[in-house]
Amino acid sequence: MSATTDHLAASALSSQARVETPFRRFVSDFFESKVATGACVMLSVIIFIALFAPLISPQNPYDLAVVDVMNARLEPGEQSWSGDLTFVLGSDGAGRDMLSAIFYGLRISLSVGVMSGIIAMIIGMVVGLMAAYFGGRTDTVIMRIVDLQLSFPAILIALVLIAILGKGVDKVIIALVTVQWAYYARTVRGSALVERRKEYIEAATCLALSHRRIVFRHLLPNCLPPMIVVGTLQTAHAISLEATLSFLGLGLPQTEPSLGLLIANGFEYMLSGKYWISFFPGIALLVTIVTINLVGDQLRDVLNPRLER
């Protein structure tokens, strides 16, 4: 509420009010929605956990000196046999604390998702800008490839790539990048086509600036807002896809267990009623994906110039 009154006050008394920069307006628009504010807070918590997992975890789940098989498959809330550690979310088949395993898993899932998202964004952005700026045959060829790729489901492309390339962290990232770049390329091309016809590009062309300078210094910054939205939503998608691949046994290796792998490891215990080994990593994955999606949705609403607010 106070944000909107600020808003009105700012426009009414423009001479006295503090300068309203686009960024400030963006921030106040973003936090108008309670759901989005909550999601933003939650996302910060998740990122914090992922960044500082080694510091805040009750134990290092991959330190063989700490993990004890005697503590295997304890229910949530039980104590370890030596009594120095409470397993808040239970323990898995090897006696690891699930809470710590989830913290570490979150770190791996998030970093793979974000890294593949950034690489895909850079590739998609360059290719999409080229298509829009040069037009003609370049555009046709690039967009045909994009259309062709988008007509196949992401999971299928990823599976085939893993089948050809083999397993491993780098292979998973390659697969995720290949799946995602087309979305970025299509989005950036769409907005670049509109921007390209505007006067400032014409002015830059008249100044005989190089293509590279026009594209990256003038065109690109004006195409960024939709890219941020696609970037958030695609990162959620990438995290989900990586979890699926890991669950199928085709993603990350056992030495780098993401949330998907933790869920897969708990599968065998589930049939005997030990739900917590799969259940809690799943909840962590779900909360991560939902919060990123909610933040992305709000970003889309705020950054969309067609929805005058």
């Binding site: 669950f247 869920i263 589930m270 799943g282 779900l286």
Partner: peptide, 14 residues
């Protein structure tokens, strides 16, 4: 939209 298919499957089995 957000629930990973495989996890929902596990929960359904459970």
């Amino acid at each position: 939209f957000s629930l990973p298919t495989f996890w929902v499957g596990l929960m359904l089995i459970m």
